[in-house]
Design a protein around this nucleic acid. Structure first.
Length: 615
DNA sequence: GCATTCACG
DNA sequence: ACGTACGTGAATGCT
């Protein structure tokens, strides 16, 4: 037995690293007694993040409580594996920090299904996010093991991940190669592997007590664990990548990038990503740049360049001036480069051996509880063009079905702020922006009036003012101000709710408690954002409930991605219409008297087919 | 590490 | 009293 000791919060803790069968027997004895005392913390060390990659390896499985940890060297095989598997079976309750990751690792590399692990798990990262969802940069504690340990357990607790990268460097390894390359018996590696479960063990009860003190209900905690499990199932399933298509696409995009990079070079811009070079060259061509960034530099973003290139935001020719060829070339080069690097190439880098990509779905990432998807960022694929989404396919014999909520944030606002006339309009099935335009401008309202009212509605949901709404809608400032005033007369409850929510937040430590009991911390200098937080988080919880409904209806196997107000599914082609109706039913609710409704769109094999592709 | 930019809802 | 657009992920340049 190798034994390491460390001081945590004034107490000596012990990390045991079994070396032989006799040591493993001691481990099994510990499991049998420890499991009667309460939940056991669980963690894994692996070769990295690429869980579905061909060369990925599970290296160690760690178990522990507040005082001791056992680091089981899975990589050694034999009795090490059977002991770890036995423990994974007999332990009734686990504590895991960022459980979806370890569920998927153990599911794929230890043959322990996430369906068996998830119901036994409390995820300390979820608990932390329900106490305070903010990242350290936003003024929160953060939801990583390191900041939580420092805050709740011991300010001197080591940064086990960060410190190990320093160890990697001292061994001639890098952050990328260290997790796979470090010696399984390296003392720091084993000590830190053990400390992670000890820290998780200590954080869990403190967070549970915090949630109880703050009045966060257990149903919300349970709900989040169910959603995390559903997201992990979606991640495990992944999506089929059309690899031939992506390889071709990558080549074409790179070619387009090169072509326009050369054009830009003719105007003296060596690097199309250097805003300074672009600004200098444009001024040299006699253009005048007026807009500046927050830090005072000349702004040369897409809007500025499109205007110089005589194009609308949809890249249509305006015929209002002679297009500036440099602006045009920079726009095209940057777009092709980004689409290639961020999308096409990332698809090829993350695809597994069976041709699927498995994006990380973080079920509770944003401070409003919104989900996020990374590696690749499938929530942000271009929607103006089918080109990139065309690369992702439904299963063989399936079609893509995308089901969107109808104007969910406006409906949620009507429900939460109890906006009488808005609720009437929605309940009677009217187009909300038509309805508003009629109330504000009378029966003879125009399309421009409707557009303005839509912009004002967005402004209400986002907490924007007249200047921003004018900029976004392109309407004159006077009209915007009149429309806002009229809007406030028609729907006075919104302003009142905003004022009430801000007042209540001031009285409760700058936190708004959402309709589902979620804690939404406000920034002191922009408390107006509470309206958006309330709407965004309620919409997110409506999405989450829909996902639970879908699982209940037996649709989990079809689910692929959650995209804020949409669920993307892969559905057997011959049953698509029926299943689409079933999905819509799962996404239909009554929220405080406001109908939340969804509409499914049935596509073809590729995701791009829902954006105009013919396959 | 911060700033800028751009992709999404 | 007034007015404030919200939330993400990712690549890249510059210091």
């Amino acid at each position: 037995m190798r034994i390491y000791r460390h001081n945590v919060a004034g107490e000596t803790v012990t990390v045991y690293v079994p070396q032989d069968e006799r040591d493993l027997e001691r481990f099994r004895d510990w499991v049998l007694t420890a499991r009667t005392r309460g939940p056991i913390a669980l963690d894994t060390e692996t070769t990295g993040l690429d869980v579905f990659g061909a060369s990925y390896r599970l290296r160690t499985v760690q178990f522990g409580d507040e005082r001791e940890a056992w680091v089981i060297h899975w990589e050694r095989g034999g009795a090490f594996r059977t002991s770890a598997l036995w423990a994974l079976e007999v332990i009734e309750r686990f504590r895991i920090h960022n459980a979806p990751f370890d569920w998927l690792v153990l599911d794929r590399h230890a043959g322990v299904s996430l369906e068996s692990l998830a119901p036994r798990t409390v995820d300390t990262k979820l608990l932390a996010g329900l106490v305070d969802p903010r990242q350290p940069q936003e003024g929160g504690i953060g939801t990583g093991l390191k900041p939580l340990s420092a805050y709740y357990v011991d300010p001197t607790a080591p940064d086990t991940q960060g410190d190990l990268t320093a160890v990697f460097r001292s061994l001639g390894l890098t952050k990328a190669t260290g997790w796979a390359g470090i010696d399984l018996d390296h003392p720091t590696y084993n000590l830190y592997a053990g400390l992670d479960v000890i820290l998780t063990s200590r954080i869990a009860p403190v967070l549970a007590a915090e949630l109880s003190r703050l009045g966060v209900r257990d149903v919300l905690v349970q709900y989040e664990h169910e959603i995390a499990r559903i997201c992990a199932v979606m991640q495990r399933k992944g999506m089929i990548l059309d690899e031939d298509y992506v390889r071709t696409l990558s080549g074409l995009l790179r070619q387009e990038e090169d072509e326009y990079t050369k054009v830009a070079a003719r105007y003296g811009v060596e690097n199309v990503n250097s805003t300074r070079q672009i600004a200098e060259a444009l001024i040299g061509m006699g253009e005048t740049l007026t807009e500046r960034t927050a830090s005072g530099a000349l702004k040369v973003d897409k809007a500025v360049l499109l205007a110089l290139a005589d194009m609308s935001m949809q890249w249509e020719r305006l015929n209002t001036r002679t297009p500036n060829p440099l602006a045009d070339a920079v726009l095209r080069s940057k777009r092709a480069g980004k689409w290639c690097t961020a999308y096409a190439d990332t698809f090829l880098e993350t695809v597994d051996e069976s041709g699927r990509i498995h994006p990380f779905i973080n079920s509770m990432q944003a401070r409003t509880g919104r989900m996020s998807i990374t590696r690749p960022a499938l929530q942000t694929l271009p929607s103006s063009d089918q080109m990139v989404r065309r690369a992702l396919l439904a299963e063989e014999g399936h079609v893509m079905v995308s089901t969107d909520f109808a104007a969910v944030e406006m409906r949620v606002l009507a429900a939460l702020a109890d906006v009488k006339r808005m609720k009437e309009a929605i309940s009677t099935g009217q187009d909300l922006h038509d309805f508003t335009a009629r109330l504000v401008f009378g029966e003879g309202f125009t399309k421009a009036h409707r557009k303005l009212c839509k912009g004002v509605g967005f402004g209400k949901v986002y907490g924007g003012g007249s200047a921003t709404i004018a900029r976004q809608t392109g309407a004159p400032m006077d009209d915007v101000q009149r429309a806002i005033a009229a809007y406030d007369r028609v729907y006075p409850e919104i302003k009142r709710a905003s004022a009430r929510w801000q007042r209540e937040a001031y009285q409760s430590g700058m936190v708004h408690v959402s309709a589902t009991g979620r804690r939404l911390p406000l920034d002191r200098d922009r408390t107006y954002a509470v309206v958006n937080y309330a709407c965004q988080s309620a919409a997110r919880d409506v999405l989450g409930q829909s996902m639970l409904n879908m699982e209940e209806a037996g649709l989990l196997d079809y689910m692929r991605l959650p995209i804020h107000d949409e669920v993307l599914c892969s559905v057997p082609a011959n049953e698509a219409a029926d299943i689409a109706r079933e999905i819509e039913r799962c996404m239909t609710f009554d929220l405080f008297g406001v109908p939340i409704e969804a509409e499914a769109e049935i596509g073809k094999r590729s995701w791009g087919s829902l954006y105009g592709a013919d396959y």
